[in-house]
Design a protein around this nucleic acid. Sequence first.
DNA 1: TCCTCACACTCAAGCGCTTTAGTCACGTTC
DNA 2: GAACGTGACTAAAGCGCTTGAGTGTGAGGA
Lengths: 348, 348
Amino acid sequence: MSAKRPAARRPTMKDIARRAGVSESAVSFALNDRPGVSEITRDRVRRVAEQLGWRPSTAARALSGEGAATVGLVLARPAHTLGVDSFFLQLVSGIQEILARRHLGLLFQVAQDVDDECAVYRHWWAEHRVDGVLVVDPRTDDPRPALLDELGLPAVVIGGTPGGLHPGLSTVWADDAGAMAALVDGLHALGHRRIAHIAGLPGLAHTERRIRALRAEAGRRGLAEVESVTTDYSDAEGAAVTRRVLEAPAPPTALIYDNDVMAVAGVAAASELGFSVPADVSVVAWEDSALCRMVKPWLSALSRDSVEFGRTAATELTALLDGGPARTVRVPVPRLIERDSTGPARSA
Amino acid sequence: MSAKRPAARRPTMKDIARRAGVSESAVSFALNDRPGVSEITRDRVRRVAEQLGWRPSTAARALSGEGAATVGLVLARPAHTLGVDSFFLQLVSGIQEILARRHLGLLFQVAQDVDDECAVYRHWWAEHRVDGVLVVDPRTDDPRPALLDELGLPAVVIGGTPGGLHPGLSTVWADDAGAMAALVDGLHALGHRRIAHIAGLPGLAHTERRIRALRAEAGRRGLAEVESVTTDYSDAEGAAVTRRVLEAPAPPTALIYDNDVMAVAGVAAASELGFSVPADVSVVAWEDSALCRMVKPWLSALSRDSVEFGRTAATELTALLDGGPARTVRVPVPRLIERDSTGPARSA
DNA sequence: TCCTCACACTCAAGCGCTTTAGTCACGTTC
DNA sequence: GAACGTGACTAAAGCGCTTGAGTGTGAGGA
């Protein structure tokens, strides 16, 4: 009611105790479904709490050993890369859905690089800020799992490799290798023998996984002219690499892009070079989004449910926070949506 | 060193006090640059703290009245709208840059709608989770400013209207009206008389602002055939509306899209209808991104620095947290990048 | 020489919650 | 009728930090 700052005071357990005519301890027991109070009292306390609009102070809770009721997520990508990427926000939205149910907060941070990210984890840990973290963009030779394990911070690696996980961490992973095999299978059936894979950031676990899978498939089928080229995921590099591979003496007849942005840029670059899609060259985007239906020949794309991916990851993390064991769970293999950018290889 | 859980213990001020041979209070004074300790002691304490890797427990800090060292940001948009939007991640990345310097955390949440968002604010407030919030997507007739004011939660409205701000809140805004005026100016000079504005979500403050500005400009110039149509920002609606306006008896010769996604979808739709861009119809996107350089005629676009926008907003919020007065600050007017999608109107 | 004051520092309370160790009244049991 | 449970509740300590109220010391002034 004061003029300057209404600053309504937050009700505390003491207020509830007074109104309900019991001690603070009784209130604590009642509100946390712990034995030690009669049902009658419990009800009364609950009612008073609700009526006062009481919510536990996370700070106080955290201080008395309960944890911060918060999980962390740090995104370490060069700033310009986080532009047009549908995957990430969808992932987060799935994560939120699960966390919100349990009143867990999501502390978000963008970092410069992995070292930076490690520093963030250390800070969060030392400051008691989070109870666990979600790790994205796992790498080959990644320092983060070891660090998190050392800190004893529960974590789930999103998109990790099933094998190489640290004891304490859970992993949710998509079967990139399987998807790549199926993809090559389909292209091979269409007559494609020369395939170029415009991959994402080198060093990312799933990039390497896809590259290895492609090489394995090629080897199995005796396809010699199959290559992977890594990029920074940007439209610029996507276009540049496309031009380079298409200007080679025996250009590929099929292009696999590790994201939608590069695929779109690649199609544009191909057109400029006089290649028609899909007559001269087939194109597949590894990641479906509105983008794929925004360009001339609609792009065939591998589609996965990123929101569900997020839900799964968050669910695993809450399980970990509840004291469950670290697990490795696989999400469904991405499905190929065939649109207009793929077709039979032009016969030589 | 134990087998099961290393769980390294976090050092506390008590540890520092013991090692440095002083009281906890002295440590507190020393570490917070408060008078009450000699420079020698201060140095010693600092050194010990660093050597122990000490960081203040935010929980304890928050509990003793210092605030949670965290600001909140909730995004209330339908899930499918979150997809291909470069603006948001860039904004967040700018925000982070400022917050990280002050060791402020960013609590992020996605909500269903504005009511949901208000509930989140109430929870955050009652749980002592945040010291302030950043409000995005302000609306005409928005319940949030009043709520935040009532709760006494410092806040800055991103993209708000300079006039209608609540006393306690800061606002950072872009001059949409000015940009629209300049835009219409340019189109008018190119001979365009019939202009359609494919706007964003109705009810958003900046949508209404742009619509009003367009109407005002049209009135000033006596252009009768100028209209705004609101959408949900999706590529689907962008295309649909484009088809509708272009199939009218006297179709517009210039289209202004409130985001890049719709502009791209709109160009595709126009082409399908046999309209050539920019010969038959000029197109401008209100938001520049890689997308605009991914389609056939590169799109002319209004470009703003979203990262800088985020920085500005975060800076205002920290000023507010430091006890500064609420302010209204304007960010630079978006600049028109002329590419290939705009040209002179075809003469009737 | 005594008083005063500034300075460097310590004590202890308190923030809101959890939790352990009681206390107390009311049956049961032999 | 004394010993013993048991269920419902309270008292108090503690989590890690801040802060206002002391305490003790040496320098400076009268």
